[in-house]
Design a protein around this nucleic acid. Structure first.
Length: 679
RNA sequence: UGGCCCAUGGUGUAACUGGCAACACGUCUGAUUUUGGUUCAGAAGAGUCUAGGUUCGAGCCCUAGUCGGUCAACCA
């Protein structure tokens, strides 16, 4: 492991600073606060890895807190799913908490606020309140109930709690500042009436706290030191602090909220609302559809916890908008699976190969390496016979030199088996190839040690024995959206970018018999194709595999590149345009690089400096004489430029003479030699 | 129109108190390879949004602007 403290993200800098300023390390405490109204996705994984990662790094507790203040939307199903996902990622929370655990305390504090004249019961419609709120550019106007007597507010609030009023009739609002430039400070709502069954408190409460009121106080009650959330809550921070101000006891820890940018992934959307829409409209089969960027979808697809954690680590944490390339995620899962996945053979699009000189009734049991990355992984048996399936695209009757695979008259190796040569094809009346007739070299069996077995052939193909192959269903997935960032277009919605071909179901794939014992949650590498895992829909009668991710395929890329060479040429051409800069700037810039150059490149740079020096005056250059002596490059550039000016007739004054003298005695041979030329 | 946040290779992130702009993915070469995978060696690609300012020296500090984001739910 490398030293993880080498580069810190900005949150870690904040913590380090707090620690340096005397914050006791043992008081560090974090939390991950999901609302149980949807499934976790890869964006949440960033937050989970951040918070739990911080917990691991500092040995601090991390609470899992369900922010369950809205019984209309929240369900136990989501609580269970969220817990399952976090555990699966490999994290352990210190305490399982619920905002609803604090409803009584929150209520008591609210009463206190009313008593202090800092909150009041309003009884207007949401439209009226919205209107009075003003806009970001114009102040709001106070509610006519703002100065309702304290006793009256107290009474109404009590009756709200007791369920005497219908939803929407009364509200508890904080009395802050209707003219604040921050909309959240314009008398925000603390409590609203909801008559709904809460997944934990049942029908006990008729009033429920709003997010802002519940969140900061929950952090305080749990003594969370750093409350980390996404950027859209930045504007809430002022209110978070106001709420804390009302109740905080100075002998206790005061939490602080800091915000980071949410993680976006290319070619998908990343919000529970939008993902829910995909589910509800049937675009996908559910929250765990393998095309979904949800944790459960990725898990079903075959992604590993390690790969997701690695992705979060590599993608990092910052405050700017981002769209992380999905290829980074794919890299992470390939890297992990390459180490761990058992190698097997499967043919997705079969064409039959008949080995003419192989006895019809003979079956050989060959050995296939389980994982060449891991010597201890051993081998498994694979049956070989006269009739085999190979991949349709691994054979061409004839092809150019770039095609390494099977062609008539040429040899390839069958993985872990024999070298075969294609002799002829059998076609039907329409010209479709039915069979490829081959011959094999009986001495070339893999691992036999014979000279023939060591022969180098251009390519190695995967295969399965027709008689032994198991027919299986293979589900291949492509990106869900055709646009890199489908939900950032002004005139189009993300639904318009849905990829109609994101799911390809192949019911006639053939896999080697070893896979009859395939286990759920186990990854397999179908050699030369990619990583696959058993889908939960599979049964003992029917194998169903999900493709997690393909292997890197430079051959496919080459073929694709041929079609689009022109656009790349254009791209490279537009890159080299130069922007005009002043001569002095050029000299400074070249100077910075001088000490890294040698030989021809150095000469060229010095030549450039002399050219630029012709556009420069002595007055421009003189300030640079006092450049710090350790900046050899800049001083050399200045020296050379001065030399040019001198040769153009500039008179050598005292300042120039001093500068040259000091360069001549410099430690750098390069600099002193150049200076001596001017002495 | 106002407040706040942000801006560094194609992408995502680093750069400590101002001192040679670094890493990863991606892209491209080459070597190795019984997976066109892996591994290994290498390359290209950024004057750090713009214009000023401070400084011997600015990605970093200051001023103004620009692009983008965000804020007006009885959601979180």
């Amino acid at each position: 492991m490398k030293d993880a403290t080498e580069s810190l993200n900005f949150i870690e800098h904040i913590i380090e600073e707090d620690l340096a300023n005397g914050f006791p390390k043992e008081k560090l405490c974090f939390r991950f606060p999901p609302e149980p109204n949807g499934y976790l996705h890869i964006g949440h994984a960033a937050s989970i890895c951040l918070n739990f990662g911080l917990g691991e790094k500092y040995g601090a507790p991390v609470n899992l807190r369900f922010d369950d203040t809205n019984p209309a939307k929240e369900e136990q199903e989501y609580v269970d799913a969220i817990k399952r996902d976090i555990s699966w990622l490999g994290f352990k929370w210190a305490n399982e908490c619920y905002s609803s655990d604090y409803f009584q305390q929150l209520y008591e504090w609210a009463v206190l606020l009313i008593q202090q004249g800092k909150a009041y019961v309003d009884q207007q419609s949401s439209e009226q309140i919205a209107e009075q709120k003003g806009t970001p550019t114009s102040p709001g106007t106070p509610s006519p109930f703002r100065d309702r007597p304290i006793a009256e507010s107290l009474d109404l609030f009590e009756r709200m709690k007791n369920g005497e009023f219908a939803p929407g009739t009364y509200l508890l609002r904080a009395k802050i500042d209707m003219a604040s430039p921050n909309m959240h400070m314009r008398d925000p709502i603390l409590y609203r009436i909801i008559h709904a069954h809460h997944h934990r408190t049942g029908n006990k409460w008729n009033i429920y706290p709003m997010y802002d009121w519940a969140h900061g106080e929950s952090d305080y009650l749990e003594q969370v030191s750093h409350s980390l959330c996404t950027l859209e809550f930045k504007a809430h921070r002022e209110l978070y602090d106001w709420h804390l101000d009302q109740i905080v006891d100075s002998s206790k820890l005061r939490p602080k909220q800091r915000e980071f940018a949410r993680r976006n992934l290319s070619f998908t959307v990343m919000s529970k609302r939008k993902l829910l829409e995909l589910v509800q409209k049937g675009v996908v089969s559910g929250w765990d559809d393998p095309r979904m960027p949800t944790i459960s979808g990725l898990r079903r697809r075959g992604y590993t916890p390690e790969s997701i954690r690695k992705f979060s680590e590599l993608a990092g944490i910052s405050k700017r908008d981002n769209v992380t390339d999905v290829s980074l995620l794919e890299y992470c899962v390939r890297e992990d699976l390459n180490q761990t996945a058992t190698r097997v053979m499967a043919v997705l699009n079969p064409i039959k190969v008949v080995i003419q000189n192989f006895p019809e009734d003979r079956i050989e049991h060959l050995h296939l390496e389980n994982n060449p990355e891991n010597e201890a992984s051993g081998t498994h048996e694979v049956p070989f016979s006269r009739e085999l399936y190979i991949e349709k695209e691994d054979f061409k009757e004839e092809a150019d030199k770039n095609f390494f695979r099977l062609t008539i008259g040429h040899e390839v190796r069958l993985k872990s088996a024999y070298i075969i040569k294609a002799e002829a094809v059998v076609k039907d009346s329409s010209g479709t190839i039915l069979e490829v007739h081959c011959s094999y070299d009986p001495d070339s069996r893999s691992g036999s040690g014979t000279e023939a077995s060591q022969r180098k052939v251009k390519s190695t193909l995967h295969w399965v024995s027709v008689a032994h192959a198991i027919q299986a269903e293979v589900r291949e997935y492509d990106r869900l959206f055709l646009d890199e960032s489908p939900d950032t277009h002004e005139t189009k919605t993300y639904m318009e970018f849905i990829n109609p071909n994101s799911l390809k179901v192949n019911k006639t794939a053939y896999v080697e018999p070893f896979l009859s014992k395939a286990k759920p949650n186990e990854s397999y590498q179908f050699q030369r194709l990619g990583y696959f895992t058993l889908d939960q829909d599979a049964s003992s009668e029917k194998l169903i595999f999900n493709k997690t991710v393909g292997l890197k395929d430079t051959w496919a890329k080459q073929s694709a590149a041929k079609l689009s060479t022109q656009s790349t040429v254009q791209k490279t051409q537009t890159q080299g345009t130069q922007v005009g800069k002043s001569g002095l700037n050029e000299i400074q810039y070249l100077g910075k690089k001088l000490t890294n150059l040698s030989g021809e490149k150095l000469e060229a740079a010095l030549h450039d400096i002399r050219n630029h020096a012709e556009q420069v005056t002595f007055e421009e250059l003189e300030p640079l004489f006092s450049t710090a002596s350790k900046k050899v490059g800049t001083r050399l550039a200045v020296l050379v430029a001065v030399g040019t000016l001198l040769s153009k007739g500039l008179t050598k004054n005292a300042a120039i003479q001093n500068f040259i003298n000091s360069c001549a005695t410099d430690e750098s041979a390069l600099l002193s030699e150049e200076a001596k030329k001017l002495l």
